[in-house]
Design a protein around this nucleic acid. Structure first.
Lengths: 233, 233
DNA sequence: CCATTAATATGTTTTTCAGCATAATAGTGA
DNA sequence: TCACTATTATGCTGAAAAACATATTAATGG
């Protein structure tokens, strides 16, 4: 699965990626020592219980990270977009992965092994602060999400998920269609509801002309209304 | 509210506290530059929307951290025990507080302002890693909790909360009574249910002889059973 | 110490949503 | 291409939990 030193240039070039915080020497070092991995749609990057191997940066593609709860029902806790970091939390909490990561489309990731990661954190305080920022942002997201998922009703949860997907992956050229191709089941697992209810509620939103649906493509027609539904709960 | 340089010795002496990672010089510096703050039961440490001022370490007491959701209903996202860190997440995510912290009993905290905090993180990689560990652990907790709160049924959620309180604050000398004094409302806000349902379900647990209740004191009678209820959902 | 308010307790009603069933449609592999 | 499977769609039923109502008990302040 893992091929050495191919095709993560984007990770090293993008100003959005955490590697932009490295010194030229460190960057050179990482370029030499990292690995790349390629995954096809539905491939598993890591599973709950696996030992973390280091820092994974998504170079290309989309990933869902979920936990299995009661009755193997999955709850998506994160959606990753390019240059997002994964897989290193457990290293620091000294535990194995508590979630599973699956590619939603063909995906390339960049891997920095744990020793190199620790080395960078120790040597470069900017990089360490970058890691802290990533965790702090993610924790904020998680706390907000906990409350939204537990307190909002189905319509509110689904509306919030759609807005979240829009914010995360953006819109297509029509400036309306959410740039992700998710099954109804994934949308349900993101929004803490059954697949039936995700389908049903999406249909309702469509009939209310808040969104329009064409297969798995979801177009936001009335953003204000969608935001209102989300805010109201 | 804030008095300078009094009574946080514990924070500087405990091997459990993050300050144990500081060099003697840094420790001296923090001892000189920190502040102490004293709060009575129900006092607010910080509110959702407030600007973070630095790192808060709980020296003595107990604190709940919650977010207000739909209809001002509060969801507790964290319970802090001595030497736990608070209030710095927003500094790194560059946003204001997204939650409110309230003292559950008389409380002493130690405050390191943000400039000093940044200085320590930049200078001492062990300290930086300590901060990373705190965030990583908290994020793991939050993710687990999201799934438990959304997927488990009332009994499972309440059982889990009781076990969580036991693990966080420990047991009294009888090795059974949970060492915290919480209102039913707080228990409900921790467990994502209405106060009525918290009261009702606690009564049920008592009648099933899983716990026994004496006012706000909760004694765990059948730990195995409680764990089973929590695991089952 | 009493009056007032807050917290706890418990019963009843209503809403929300999960669970199940069934059908139609879309995807996939031999 | 056709058979087979997965996904989407929709209706119906029942369980779970919120909302509401009303006592009862405990805590608090004048």
């Amino acid at each position: 699965m893992i091929q050495k030193n191919i095709d993560c240039e984007k990770c090293f070039a993008s100003p959005d990626a955490i590697f932009s915080l490295l010194t030229p020497e460190e960057l050179e070092y990482v370029k030499k020592h990292h690995s790349c991995a390629y995954y096809k749609k539905n491939d598993i990057l890591f599973k709950e219980g696996d030992e973390p191997i280091g820092l994974l940066m998504l170079s290309d593609g989309k990933i869902k990270v979920f936990r299995e709860g009661v009755g193997r029902r999955e709850q998506i806790v994160r959606m990753v977009k390019p240059f997002g970091l994964m897989g290193f939390r457990g290293l620091f909490a000294t535990e194995n992965h508590i979630a599973t990561a699956v590619a939603l489309e063909d995906t390339v990731i960049c891997i920095v092994d744990k020793d190199d990661l620790m080395k960078l954190i120790r040597e470069n305080s900017n990089f360490a602060i970058g890691i802290i920022q990533a965790l702090a942002t993610e924790l904020g997201f998680s706390n907000r999400r906990t409350v939204a998922l537990t307190q909002k009703h189905i319509r509110g949860r689904l509306a919030e998920s759609l807005l979240f997907l829009k914010d995360t992956y953006g819109l297509e050229d029509d400036d309306a269609t959410i740039k992700i191709y998710l099954s109804r089941e994934d949308i349900a697992n993101l929004s803490n509801m059954t697949t039936s209810n995700a389908i049903r509620t999406l249909s309702t939103f469509a009939s209310e002309e808040v969104i329009s649906i064409s297969g798995r493509k979801i177009k936001i027609i009335d953003l204000k209304k969608l935001e209102r539904i989300s805010a109201l709960g």
